[in-house]
């Protein structure tokens, strides 16, 4: 493991017990927070307080797969400021071209599903701005 980013260290101070050496069974610190874990949370969880500006988000699964496809190297991730998962096994595993074709197929299938979803939800959701129009 190389030195974690300073952001990470800020994260590590978040709880009292995280400073001690990790056990062979557990990775109990911020380095274990992979990009997929972060995306799964920030795009899909958290409280939703509807305001006057709304953004319709694409399927989280599609987004995270695309991230994996496009984030080809740790260097690239460093540019993005998301290199805390550097130590993750997947970073090296995903660098190979082995399953890229498979991933691309999956993306295609998901895009088709999204298109179908969008067609149905456009009809049910209507215009995006209930807050503003109510004022």
């Amino acid at each position: 493991m190389t030195s974690p980013s300073s952001d990470l260290q800020a994260g590590q101070t978040g709880g009292p017990p995280v400073g001690r050496p990790s056990s062979p069974y557990l990775s109990t610190h911020a380095q274990a927070q992979s990009l997929a874990d972060v995306l799964e949370r920030v795009l899909d969880k958290g409280i939703v307080i509807v305001g006057d500006i709304q953004v319709r988000l694409l399927d989280i699964e599609l987004l995270t797969i695309k991230i994996r496809l496009l984030v080809a190297s740790v260097d690239k991730a460093k540019e993005m400021g998301v290199n805390w998962w550097e130590a993750d096994e997947f970073a090296s595993a995903q660098n190979g071209d082995g399953n890229r074709a498979e991933l691309a197929d999956r993306v295609k299938a998901l895009e088709q599903r999204l298109k179908n979803d969008a067609e149905t939800s456009d009809r049910t959701q209507g215009k995006a701005d209930p807050e503003q129009s109510s004022r």
Partner: peptide, 28 residues
């Protein structure tokens, strides 16, 4: 993905700093 990953990282970075400082209800 580069754009989205970096935006997500920025959002998460602030919230990580927040839980180090106190209780926070994260927004999506």
């Amino acid at each position: 993905a580069t754009w989205l990953g970096s935006v997500a990282a920025g959002h998460h970075r602030v919230l990580q700093a927040a839980i180090a400082a106190g209780d926070v209800v994260p927004f999506r």
